[in-house]
Design a protein around this nucleic acid. Structure first.
Lengths: 342, 342
DNA sequence: GTGAAAGCGCTAACAG
DNA sequence: CTGTTAGCGCTTTCAC
C-alpha cells in the first residue's frame, strides 16, 4: 500500500482536508491556511515520500490528467512527430494515453471506448475515415462532453475542430513548381486510404493542372489494405507510364516514401532522375534530406500540426468554444535534386 | 454527467452490486447470477450506452489499466518501433501512458513521479542512464511495488529485468563481417550518450578486434547534448581519418543514421563507397534498405525488444517473479551495398 | 440468487 | 484558520 493523505493527516496532526489543501495549493471555498501549517504538512509529506493518488483525486474532481491520442499507425515519419509535439504541449498537466487503430474499424471503436471508459480529459484523433465510426466519435462529444480535436482530416458528421496541413495547397504547390520548371505532363500518384485528406491532395493537384490548362493524370489504386508491396507496385506503374512515348515528364507522389520507391524503380529501368524525369514528394520525411536521396518535396510541419492540435484541445478543455473550425498549417516548397527545368 | 451503475441498477430493478457483477462477468465471492438477470442488465446497459468508469473501478481495485512507457525520444526509428510493439502486446487490457525524458534529468524524475501519482500498473522505461535518478526508479519498485522493466539498457542499482538487443554481439558482428571481407583497419564511431548500451557496443567491437589481433580505433566525442550537427561533425572526423595515408579501410557506425552522414561526407570528399572505404551501420533503420542508400548493417528487431519487454511486464503484473534477468534479442547480419572485400 | 453497506483516496461544501 | 461530513463510481464482503 502506498501512503495516503490520512497517514499524513495523522502524522502532521491535521485533518485530511487541511492536508489536501496544503498539498494541492488550491483553495476552493476561499479557504486559507497559515504558512506554518502548509510548511509543516509539506515537510511531513516530503519526508514520507507522499504522492497524491491522482486516480482518487480525479474521481473526486471528474478529471483524469490524461488525454487520449488516437493515431492510425506509429511509424512513417508522421504520427510520431505529431505525437511528440502533443506530448510537449500538454506536459506536465496531461499525459497522453496512446491508442493505435491501424485503419481497423473494430479497433478504432474499441480504442474510443477505452478513452470513454477512462474518462480522459480530451481526445486528439487521426480517424480512419470510416463512416461506421461516426457515432462513436459523436458520443465522445455528445454523451461524454469530452473535448475532441481531429488531426490531419475530419470526419463528416462529427462536429469538432480539425487541425491539419493545407493538403490542397500542398499538392497544388508541387504541381505548380513543376509547371514553373516547364513541365506539362505531370502525373500524380497515391496509395492513400479513402480519407478526406487524400481527396484534398488530389483536388489541389487537379486545380493546379486545371489552372494551367493541363490534363491531370491521377494514379490511385483502390485498395482495402496497404503494405510496402503496394507502394512498389504503384511506383512500377508510374515508371511504366513515364517510359511511354508520350509519357509524363514529372511525377508527384503523395508522400515521400512513395517517391523513394519511384526513384528506385527509375533506377531499375535505367531512367535518370532528374534528367529523364522529375520526381517530387509531399510532406518532407526525414530521409529526403539525405544527399543520396535529395528529394524535392513540399514540406509540412507535423510538429506544428501536433502543437496546434494540442493547444486547441487545451482551450477546449478550459471551456473555450471553438466550434468546428479547421486550422491549417502552411506548406513550404523545398526543391532539392530530383527536379529540373525542361 | 455520464451514466453510472446506479442508474442502470434503477432502470433494471437490481442493486448496484448485482449490476456490477453482471457487467464485469467477474464473481469474487463465488457469487452466481441467473442468466436472465445477466441478460436483462446487459441489455439495459447496452441501451443506455453505459460504460463503466474505469477510474472508479481502478480506485476500488487498485488497478488502473494503464502502464507507463518512458522513452528518451520519440523519433529516430527506434522508440516508436518499441512503443508500437508494446502497444500491441498489452492491448486492450492496458493503455500505454506515454512519457518522454529527452535525456533531461529533471524531466525524467518528473515523468516517474507522474507514473507514480497515476498509480500505473507497471512501467517500461528506457532510462537516461543518469545515476541521479536511480532512487526514483528504485522507489517505483520498492515504495510502490510497481513492476518495472527496462528496455535497451539497465541502470546499476536498480533491480529489475532488462530487455534489449545484444549490443555487444551486434557490434562484434559488424567488425567481424568486415574482417571476413579482409579489412584490418576498422574504425568505430559513435556519438551515443553515456549509457550502458553505448559501452556494450564498444566492448563488442573491441572484442572482435582483439580476437583478430587488430588495433581498435574508437571515435567517441564526449558530449553533454546531442544534435544533428554533431553527427555531421563526427562523420567528417571519420572521413578525415579515412583519407590519411594509413587510414581505416572500413568504418562501423553505432547507428545507421550516423552512417548516412558518413556516406554523405565520403561523397563530399570524393571517396567512393565501397570502393575506397566500406561503411557499416548498426540497427537497420528504415532508409537503409532504400536502393539509393543500401547500407550494410546489423539488424536488431526493436519490435522484438518491445514485444518481449511488454510480455515480461505482463508476467510481472501477474505476480510472476522474474528477478533481474536480462533478455537479449539476437542481431542478424544484413550485407548490402556499402561494403566490399579487399 | 440478490441486496446492503463499507470502503478505495481524495475533494469540496459547510460548519465552526 | 481548520475540522467534519458527504460524496465521486465502482467493487466486495457479508448477510439474507
Amino acid at each position: 500500500m502506498a501512503i495516503t493523505i490520512k497517514l499524513i493527516a495523522q502524522k502532521s496532526g491535521f485533518s485530511a482536508s487541511t492536508v489536501s489543501h496544503a498539498i494541492s495549493g488550491r483553495n476552493p471555498g476561499k479557504r486559507s491556511l497559515s504558512p506554518e501549517t502548509i510548511n509543516k504538512i509539506r515537510a511531513v509529506a516530503q519526508e514520507m515520500g507522499y504522492r497524491p493518488n491522482l486516480l482518487a483525486a480525479g474521481l473526486a474532481q471528474s478529471k483524469t490528467y490524461a488525454i487520449g491520442v488516437l493515431v492510425a499507425l506509429l511509424r512513417g515519419d508522421f504520427y510520431e512527430r505529431i505525437l511528440e509535439a502533443i506530448t510537449e504541449v500538454v506536459w506536465p498537466e496531461f499525459s497522453p494515453l496512446l491508442a493505435v487503430h491501424n485503419y481497423d474499424l473494430q479497433r478504432e471503436r474499441r480504442e474510443i471506448d477505452l478513452f470513454l471508459g477512462k474518462r480522459v480529459d480530451g481526445v486528439i484523433a487521426a480517424c480512419s475515415g470510416r463512416e461506421e465510426n461516426i457515432e462513436a466519435y459523436q458520443s465522445i462529444i455528445k454523451n461524454y462532453s469530452m473535448p475532441l480535436v481531429f488531426v490531419d482530416r475530419g470526419l463528416n458528421g462529427v462536429d469538432c475542430p480539425v487541425v491539419r496541413g493545407d493538403h490542397e495547397k500542398t499538392a497544388f504547390l508541387a504541381a505548380h513548381e513543376l509547371q514553373k520548371l516547364g513541365h506539362k505532363r505531370i502525373i500524380y500518384a497515391t496509395a492513400g486510404a479513402k480519407l478526406e485528406s487524400t481527396e484534398l491532395f488530389k483536388d489541389g493537384y487537379r486545380k493546379a493542372m486545371g489552372e494551367a490548362g493541363l490534363e491531370p493524370i491521377v494514379l490511385h489504386p483502390d485498395l482495402a489494405v496497404w503494405n510496402k508491396q503496394i507502394n512498389r507496385q504503384l511506383a512500377a506503374d508510374v515508371v511504366d507510364q513515364v517510359r511511354r512515348g508520350d509519357g509524363p515528364t514529372a511525377v508527384v507522389c503523395q508522400v515521400d516514401w512513395l517517391a523513394y520507391d519511384v526513384l528506385a524503380q527509375c533506377e531499375l529501368h535505367g531512367l535518370k532522375v532528374p534528367d529523364d524525369v522529375s520526381v517530387m514528394g509531399l510532406q518532407d520525411c526525414e530521409p529526403s534530406a539525405l544527399p543520396a536521396i535529395s528529394l524535392s518535396t513540399i514540406r509540412v510541419s507535423f510538429e506544428d500540426v501536433g502543437r496546434q492540435a494540442a493547444s486547441v484541445l487545451l482551450k477546449l478543455i478550459n471551456g473555450e468554444d471553438i466550434g468546428r473550425q479547421t486550422f491549417m498549417i502552411e506548406p513550404s516548397v523545398i526543391m532539392r535534386g530530383t527536379t529540373r527545368a525542361i
